[in-house]
Write a protein that binds this DNA or RNA. Structure first.
Lengths: 342, 342
DNA sequence: AGAATCGCTCAAAGCGCTTTGGATAACTCA
DNA sequence: TGAGTTATCCAAAGCGCTTTGAGCGATTCT
């Protein structure tokens, strides 16, 4: 059943039926009732393709999630982010159009979205320091919101970020205050902006404590359990192994934990671990005493908020660009204890 | 730049330009070349909304991922499944339309997709035993493929499933052959079809070994690390605790591992653990000796295959319904060892 | 009473593409 | 040479909706 047929059934014009259904005021309440009832009766649903063509809005938000070619790793943080965003979209009548691309094709994918009018806006995730996507999207003149920031880019754009530097600085200071002075840092790939900020936080804390940074204690790689494990195994095998680890994600920290145990050491006693916790739903760091001491910030909440900000941007393109910086919360868990200096 | 403008630039009709770009044979190769060059020059991209309206195909596949209301848990297996499917879609020019809904709205979401013509086909994930979605979608007459099966449903439908029963039966037999006879089973929610099949596999193995099942050793819950931990803590506190665990997912097994360690026991020595491993990319159970002995089947490969099957179904609606049963592979890891009967 | 306003409805014009059903010129074959 | 192909191209008709611009009684205002 389409609009034409329905309006014929009702002896009304398509105009009136359309208006009645879409809540326009210039239609008599009595006829509106007739229309809505007939629509229900005949199970009429406006064809979404025709509607989007007519309105020029696709009522859909684009997410592009890149997959690194080497390891075929999907950043698991994406799924929680998307869950948060998806619910907000649904509430506002938007769909989410998701494209998975190999790294190289990413820019093209965004252009495709924009130029072909497939989506009304896009979310940019995991920006690098001078992320090309940002100016690219600005040129394409499509609304977007960045989850994170690109510190090398001066031109304004909408973003929502966690205060990564302060979070990791706090984490490192916490270890220092516990008496650790040989502290390793397992970071994500430092092409990514957030990783650089976290590194800065780590270095800033060491500097405050007058501890010269030791390159051999700093690692940077994809954030996966095996990478955390391998890095920790290497570090624990040093002549002067670290007594504490700062891990850029909980999944890395799980790898560190495994390495600690395999060395017959005890986490929280022999070796301390603190990590950034995105509060992933299926890997919660919760309970009375959470497994890890961590700096927590919900990536799902961030997804939801980014979605809201983007929808606002779509509706009010001239409103000022949103910029939000969230603080992470320190959670005390079982993975930290006094260091050798305590 | 739209088709009208482009064709004006070229002094050609929209028809010819459209045909040239879409590779139809009835256009001179010379003019085709002119057209493609002009298209590149002016950065012409056919508007996807207009195209889908004209063709009647949306070139998009729907995925609906439900979020259980109580725990707000996003099944983490989805992200790998989607990664696998997404790449196949991209290869075939399809998009993925993802909707996240609270449990109750799920059926309505499928109807919305179908009746409004938003997608050309849908994937059904995590079916229950008599999943309502299947007959619902069949009635709506929209192509779909189920990842998993609904054992109570007799009418044919397209599916791809892992042989869950045999996998867990093999797992349990493996523990039995190692000399364990008190074997716990930590399952997923048994409203889900796969969980029931796994339970059947566990029971079948016990039956073969003439071991009466003990309800107190069987648990069923959402598959998360904390749930695995809590169940294992309870079970290990029994007067007669199990000497081995079968876990329905690796994430549960990680919880079991934590509980074992917290009881100052050693996994693979004092207590054995075997699990089902979906081969998630960021939680790999790999290496020379993987952490867990497991029955492995890649959920990402399943996603890719489901996507292919669905696209075939869309293109050839009258072809026979695909039914594929995959066998899981036994992987020997460090989590199992001889039992008390050995 | 005539003009102006209001409330409701409609015909028709898009939205930007694909596709049908010719048209035209060139080319083939007997 | 004239009918029948073939190779190219085009005008126009959708696809199913929204939205513009009018129309037309009925009501209100001056």
């Amino acid at each position: 059943m389409n609009l034409k047929e329905l309006s014929k059934q009702l002896n009304l014009s398509q105009t009136t039926v359309s208006r009645a259904l879409n809540g326009y005021p210039e239609v008599n309440e009595a006829t509106r009732k007739r229309v809505t009832e007939a629509a229900r009766k005949y199970r009429y649903r406006p064809n979404v393709r025709a509607r989007t063509l007519a309105t020029g809005k696709s009522m859909s938000i684009g997410h592009i999630i890149p997959m690194s070619k080497q390891n075929e790793l999907v950043n698991m943080v994406f799924s929680d982010f998307i869950a948060g965003a998806g619910l907000v979209y649904a509430d506002h009548g938007y769909n989410m159009t998701l494209t998975i691309v190999k790294d190289d094709d990413e820019l093209e994918a965004y252009r495709g979205f924009a130029e072909r009018g497939a989506v009304d806006g896009v979310i940019v995730q995991a920006p690098t320091r001078e992320d090309r996507r940002i100016s690219f999207l600005a040129d394409l003149d499509i609304p977007f919101v960045v989850h994170g920031r690109a510190s090398q880019i001066r031109a304004p754009y909408g973003w929502l970020d966690v205060n990564n530097k302060r979070a990791i600085q706090t984490a490192t200071k916490h270890l220092l205050s516990l008496g650790h002075h040989r502290i390793a840092m397992l970071n994500g790939l430092e092409t990514l902006d957030f990783a650089v900020r976290r590194r800065d936080g780590y270095l800033a804390a060491l500097r405050e404590a007058n501890i010269p940074p030791d390159d051999s204690l700093m690692r940077s790689n994809d954030m996966s359990e095996p990478n955390g494990y391998e890095a920790a195994m290497e570090l624990l095998a040093l002549k002067a192994p670290p007594t504490a680890f700062v891990a850029s994600s909980m999944i890395l920290a799980l790898g560190v934990k495994r390495a600690i145990e395999e060395n017959n050491l005890e986490m929280g006693k022999d070796v301390s671990v603190i990590c950034f916790d995105d509060d992933i739903s299926y890997l919660p760091n919760a309970g009375d005493t959470p497994l890890f001491t961590a700096l927590r910030s919900s990536v799902r909440a961030a997804g939801a908020r980014c979605a809201s900000l983007l929808i606002e941007r779509i509706n009010k393109p001239d409103a000022p660009l949103p910029n939000e910086l969230w603080e992470a919360e320190l959670v005390h868990g079982a993975s930290t204890g006094p260091g050798p200096n305590a």
